[in-house]
Design a protein around this nucleic acid. Structure first.
Length: 741
RNA sequence: GCGCGAUUAGCUCAGUUGGUAGAGCGGCGCUUUUACACAGCGAAGGUCGGGGGUUCAAGUCCCUCAUCGCGCACCA
């Protein structure tokens, strides 16, 4: 606008109407993006950031390409964008890297579901090649939708560095990581017990198992001289070991290894007594039989004593020939029949009706997990290895360590600041219970394991490398990797690793990661693992864990409840600024947020308030302000603002975003608008030009500084107002220096 | 079973190191005055889940109980 010499300045037409976010936001985002300033190198080039400034890096937790974003993503984007904008305005070399995650199982499952709906087809009807093509197409589509949504939120991401877990560079990183861990002996192929999802026909990791409480019948059977209890009679065919605690007085007469002949489901068998501390004398009768093929705990007992393991249930959840007359039956059908038979044989002691227990189900398919012993690929978390270079305090370069130690030490030593006490405990607890990580999946979409096999006279030959081997007869492993394998490399695969790129040197370790607490084990801990092994570094210096956005009744948003909130709809109604504020204010980072539309509405009003303040200030502006000197009174007012600004700055630096937001909101509305503006009405009509001009200058300064401080939170409306201010040599507000500096 | 978190105004939630209880929304009353009715002003509304303790002083620290939520383990 043109500065005006009258008391009453002229204001742009659009300022005379209520603030209209829809009319401003898209073009403002475009302006930011076109400026190139999301890329830190452009900031340096134009002298907005010093070349030797400290780097500040965040990688966006890459959303899954399974459809559209929900309001939880909107919250996560806001959280990070506030921090990123604040750091950029404070002169840091600020980089926020965008990306998306192929989410192997989740995405394939979505497409399979669609196939099923469209014509009852399965992936096998299409074949691997065609299926993978379709999943890629679906993923591409989701990607476009998602990236559009992220832009609408105002996220200041460096799009020139966009990464996708399945793009060429990330493929290379994944294969290289695999190869190096394979060579170090940390990735191995083994015959171990895994979580088998009979519906999805794939393994899943421990962290993808969801326990559901269920009421069941609990049976007691006569097993020779023992009475055993079980909720799963259908697994008991192969049971030929009876395990008791060595200190259990009830069973002192039996010795370890003692053979006992007894009558069982399909006739007489010979059982062996095993004494192992895993058997708890207090539970049931204190004696149990074991099914090592289909139970984690039993598997471990069997391993300890080198016992036989026999498969009872097949991959489809049906009984095998070992079940005799029951072979071929699904376990659900077989259960009652087996109990009936045992009853007839006089071996049923009693049935407990209301037995509560948890059953393991698959996070993705909902199927009951059937533990199975299978040949799969694993990462050994307890296996010692020599770490060549380590910058992690407490772990010396060239020393022997394990992945588990690495993960623990990184946080314990303070190299990673995980200062939210509750989550810190959860992290350590998780590590203590950590087993080897099963990384192979029997699906088609994802990173195919870079291992090739060839039959030779001496047996099977195995080759592992980033690229396929030369020569004939090689067949690549059909399994793909757990999606979290590639996600775990994210902080450095996005920066060009395995190449020794300048980016890697400048921006890694990243400064901050801001994930939901849900993925602390799945993602955060595994990034620590991978970064520790491959770089000898922590992946990030600080973890800022945030809560979940829930529906107003406290339940999770879910498709089945159909209680989802579409962030785009909120943006359309209230503007992105209002959505951002509504999600941040009123909840400390780390606790869950109950979504409240009325709060968002409140911040739409706030944006409008700001708009009207701008109108008042500009209406009362005159060009002579440049000569104005502050009166004592106005100096006091300005100083009061600077005190507030100081505390807002501190709150931002310490990630107390909700307090910072409240502080700026309160100042603008209650101080600036209600008090300062009101008292200005008489001062501006003063006969004394010194008083009048001082006040004009004060108002413009306050407006300019408050919108600058508000910018990280409400980037759009502040940028729109800043654009109207009569300031010389203006840059975008986004790259303006934070007023405290 | 072990652990974590929550319990503050009608609703949703803040309240960093202990120092006179706050916000938004809703409800009530009044008001068109250099911005704003997408507003302003005013008043109402709280024994900070119960009980006990430490302290000059406790929403805040300690103990205990209750209710709700979550995680892990067990799941013979």
């Amino acid at each position: 606008m043109q500065p005006h010499s009258n008391t009453s300045g002229q204001v742009p037409e659009k300022l005379l109407k209520p603030y209209d976010p829809a009319a401003e936001e898209v073009s403002i985002y475009k302006k930011w993006e076109d400026s190139g300033y999301f890329t830190p190198e452009n900031m340096i080039k134009d002298g907005l950031t010093k070349p030797d400034a400290e780097a500040f890096t965040i990688v966006l937790p890459p959303p899954n390409v399974t459809g559209t974003l929900h309001v939880g993503h909107a919250y996560e984007d806001t959280l990070q964008d506030i921090i990123v904008r604040f750091n950029r305005m404070n002169g840091k070399k600020t980089l926020w890297i965008p990306g998306t995650d192929s989410a192997a199982i989740a995405t394939q499952a979505r497409v399979e579901k669609n196939l099923q709906k469209e014509g009852g087809k399965t992936r096998h009807d299409l074949g691997r090649e065609e299926m993978v093509k379709r999943v890629h197409a679906f993923a591409k589509d989701s990607e476009n939708t998602i990236l559009g949504q992220v832009r609408k939120m105002g996220a200041s991401l460096d799009w020139t560095r966009y990464a996708y877990t399945l793009d060429e560079k990330r493929n290379r990183a994944v294969f290289t990581a695999f190869k190096r861990m394979y060579d170090a002996g940390l990735i191995y192929q083994g015959h171990r017990i895994v979580n088998w999802d009979p519906k999805g026909q794939t393994t899943i990791s421990d962290d993808e198992v969801v326990y559901v409480e269920e009421k069941a019948k609990f049976y007691y059977f006569q097993y020779g001289p023992f009475v055993i209890g079980t909720a799963r009679p259908e697994t008991k065919f192969g049971d030929k070991y009876i395990v008791v605690n060595p200190d259990d007085a009830k069973y002192q007469e039996y010795t370890h290894g003692q053979k006992i002949e007894l009558e069982w489901i399909n006739g007489p068998i010979v059982a062996t007594v095993i004494k192992d501390a895993a058997s708890d004398p207090e539970i049931g009768t204190g004696a149990m039989t074991i099914t090592p093929w289909h139970s984690m705990v039993d598997f471990e007992i069997a391993e300890r004593h080198h016992l036989d393991k026999e498969q009872v249930i097949d991959k489809y959840g049906k009984l095998l020939p070992i079940a005799g007359e029951f072979a071929g039956l699904k376990i659900s059908e077989a259960r009652e029949k087996i109990v009936e038979k045992l009853k007839e044989k006089g071996l049923l002691v009693r049935i407990e009706e209301n037995y509560m227990h948890n059953i393991a189900t698959s996070e993705r398919t909902g199927a009951t997990i059937e533990p199975q012993i299978m040949e799969q690929w694993f990462i050994g978390v307890n296996k010692p290895f020599i770490i060549p270079h380590s910058k992690i305090p407490g772990i010396a370069s060239g020393s022997e360590t394990t992945l588990k130690t690495l993960m623990k030490t990184a946080v314990e030593s303070g190299a990673i600041d995980m200062s939210q006490e509750g989550f810190r405990k959860t992290y350590f607890h998780w590590i203590e219970n950590l087993h080897d990580w099963c990384i192979s999946r029997q699906i088609w979409f994802g990173h195919r394991i870079p291992v090739w096999y060839r039959a030779t006279e001496k047996g099977k030959e195995i080759y592992c490398n980033v690229v396929a081997p030369e020569g004939d007869g090689w067949e690549q492993e059909v399994d793909v990797l757990d999606t979290w394998f590639s996600s775990a490399l994210w902080t450095f695969s996005t920066l060009g690793w395995p190449e020794e790129t300048p980016d890697l040197k400048t921006y890694h370790p990243t400064s901050l990661i801001a994930p939901a607490y849900e993925i602390l084990p799945l993602w955060v801990s595994r990034m620590i693992l991978m970064s520790g092994f491959h770089l000898g570094q922590v992946p990030f210096k600080k973890v800022l864990i945030h809560g979940l956005v829930r529906a107003k009744d406290g339940r999770k948003f879910s498709k089945s409840l159909n209680n989802g909130v579409d962030p785009l709809e909120m943006i359309e109604k209230y503007g992105a600024d209002a959505l951002r504020m509504g999600l941040i204010v009123g909840s400390a980072v780390g606790s869950d947020i109950k979504f409240d539309e009325s709060r968002i509405k409140g911040y739409k009003l706030f944006a409008n308030k700001l708009w009207n303040i701008a109108r008042f200030v500009l209406t009362n502006y005159s060009a002579e302000v440049s000569t104005a000197i502050y009166t004592k009174d106005d100096e006091v007012v300005l100083a009061a603002w600077h005190t507030t600004l100081q505390s807002i700055t501190t709150d931002l630096e310490t990630y107390r975003l909700h307090l910072a937001t409240e502080g700026i909101y309160h100042f603008i509305w209650d101080e600036f608008a209600n008090t300062i503006l009101e008292e200005s009405k008489s001062l501006l009509t003063s006969e004394d030009p010194a008083i009048k001009l001082s006040r004009q200058k004060l108002l413009l300064t306050l407006l300019s500084e408050t919108i600058t401080a508000l910018h990280p939170f409400m980037p759009f409306v502040t940028e729109a107002i800043y654009d109207l201010l009569p300031i010389d040599n203006k840059q975008l507000l986004m790259v303006t220096t934070w007023p405290m500096k």
